[in-house]
Design a protein around this nucleic acid. Structure first.
Lengths: 203, 203, 203, 203
DNA sequence: AATGAATGAGGATTCATTCAT
DNA sequence: GATGAATGAATCCTCATTCAT
């Protein structure tokens, strides 16, 4: 049984983690990974620098927390889609839209999570990277599509990498270029090429 | 008219820039962008730290030089392919292979050039990014393919982004995962999906 | 008259001080004086860091308590020897052995008590240092020996300093060198030199 | 052949090392080993903190330099005495006086070099400690005295440890107590006890 | 033009002490 | 009294840039 004090502590703890998360995201957004210092995170989270170290052993641990905190809801949503009763093509379309929405919303965090190689070094994960696990899930969906006869028998991992790279790359490019496509238009373009190729049915 | 002294100066200058380039690449390879200090670059280039500042106003300028120096031959090769007499699909296949070879060979540099957002910030380019200019060229090729009736009338920019993201993403993923696919296999997989889609001709 | 509550408080208090003593000694042993943080002491003593400050005004006060707590039994034993009916030479031999045993047993504490000048600064004592009071006692014994005609009329303080320094120094040296002499051998060597000198009876 | 520039550099370097040495000694004297921060050393040496790191890789390396710089002249003087034509007893007396003079003069440094266990930890030396090497030399002298028949056949290492501990301990005690004996008096007292013991010739 | 020592603003981390609960 | 999170000064070390030689 959890005592009152314990529950209160947990509540406070989760509040502070939330503050740290939001502070860190704000700093990442404004200053990039390299400009994300403990000083700035502490200030943005409204606490003393030393306090951060009462909750995270190191900067790395803090950033890992931010990553997990940011990725968790997305991975849950992803799994939900994977387990749906939709057909493979519909699943891919849903995922493409899901990612686009998340990327747009949490751009700063994902920028450093997905692409930043400094972060890759810092957050030491290879197989478990967000990207890698996404690729695995997509590969599974494509595999299902192939077995149902909906898809041609292609190299599923390669196809999954293409899908993931393209999904993320398109959004990133929009950010870099400072433009923004309507969600549907972008998704349709991606799905059109990914499902039917450039050459079309007579190809 | 260039005097003898002037020519000699230029020669020396280009030799030193070459040394800086190679030193910087070596340091980037070994220590990553964050570990690339002026000290290390100077040491690797076989010169004094102060001398770097006689040729580059700042670290940023030096890194921009490295980027340009690294990208130039690739862009030349790209243009050559674009101007070839090949059909669009063959051009794309050639480019895919070209990029793969370059990425594998100069991995460290491109890692920081193409993806590292710390570098993006550092190297202030939006439209002129390597990626952006690559996308433009690819879009042109696809446009040609469409006009020749070889490709379906898709959103050329989106398709180009997909192609570029996928080309780069696949190699990056291999690096991250520590594996390496045979060049042809990877290229075939990409071209297969990109040209014909997952659904196949009956799709 | 002490009330029951008062007595209970005292009991609890002495139990906690005991826990603090043992915790502090453990930490001193494992981490050295510099590594002895209030956090670690609290953890080793099985209590919250804040609680330490309910019983000791500061780290310095806590360490002074540890010093006194560690030194007390040794000083009692020393006084017991001093008041014995033994002759001066035998007293010295007993003391030499007593110290050796204590030093070996409580090495970590005494290392910081006796020699560590950081501690000396921290624990501000001059005359009352363990060392100083030991020297006084030894001087008294030597004085007695001289008055009984057993010893030559030497400078008693100097002789006492020699005895104390040598007693401690020999053990310290063993620790530093990582070796350990048998108690008797070391004691015999010390007493031999101290009583008869290097030159021998004909000297 | 050393170029002019090279010689000038060496001169400047040795001047700066001298400044660092004196600054460090001043700080050690005033603040103790624990209070000896790089900031303070830099300030005392009249230079910027960062400059220290151009000449010493770390605080430890700097302190090791200070130790060596402080110890070198003493060890040279010690060796000179060892190689003299004096008899063993005279050598010991000379050494005793030498040490006393050095200790008095460079008290702060030696306090941390010889006794401070924080320093021992920091300066990782066991056998090569100042103390250990001094003991070795003394042991050699005693050994010679024994072979010449001047000394009784005692445990030379133990006797050397006694001599060294007593020599240093007496000075340290004077410092701690804030008094100061005349050099000769202290030396005579030590040599008297060390050579002839407490018991005297009839002992 | 080359050199490399000097600089000093930061940056990550530690820890004695305080204080609200 | 007990607790442990909060605090922020202090510490070691880094590195882009400057400048005298």
């Amino acid at each position: 049984m959890t005592s009152l004090a314990e529950r209160r502590r947990e509540l406070l703890d989760s509040m502070m983690r939330e503050a740290v998360y939001e502070g860190a995201v704000a700093v990442l957004t404004e200053h990039g990974l390299n400009g994300t210092t403990m000083d700035r995170v502490a200030a943005a989270a409204g606490m003393a620098k030393g306090s951060l170290y009462n909750h995270f052993r190191s900067k790395q641990e803090l950033l890992e927390f931010v990553r997990d905190r940011a990725v968790a809801p997305m991975q849950e949503a992803l799994e939900e889609i994977v387990e749906n009763k939709l057909c493979a093509a519909e699943k891919l379309a849903s995922i493409s839209r899901l990612w686009r929405e998340y990327l747009v919303k949490h751009h700063a965090v994902f920028e450093f999570l997905i692409n930043d190689h400094a972060a890759k070094r810092l957050l030491r994960d290879t197989e478990q990277t967000v990207r890698a696990s996404g690729i695995k899930q997509i590969a599974t969906i494509i595999e299902q599509g192939i077995q149902k006869g909906a898809f041609r028998p292609v190299d599923v991992t390669a196809a999954a990498e293409i899908f993931v790279s393209a999904s993320i790359g398109m959004v990133e490019q929009e950010f870099a270029a400072g433009i923004s496509r309507p969600v549907d238009e972008a998704g349709d373009a991606l799905m059109g090429v990914f499902l039917h190729g450039l050459c079309g049915s007579e190809g």
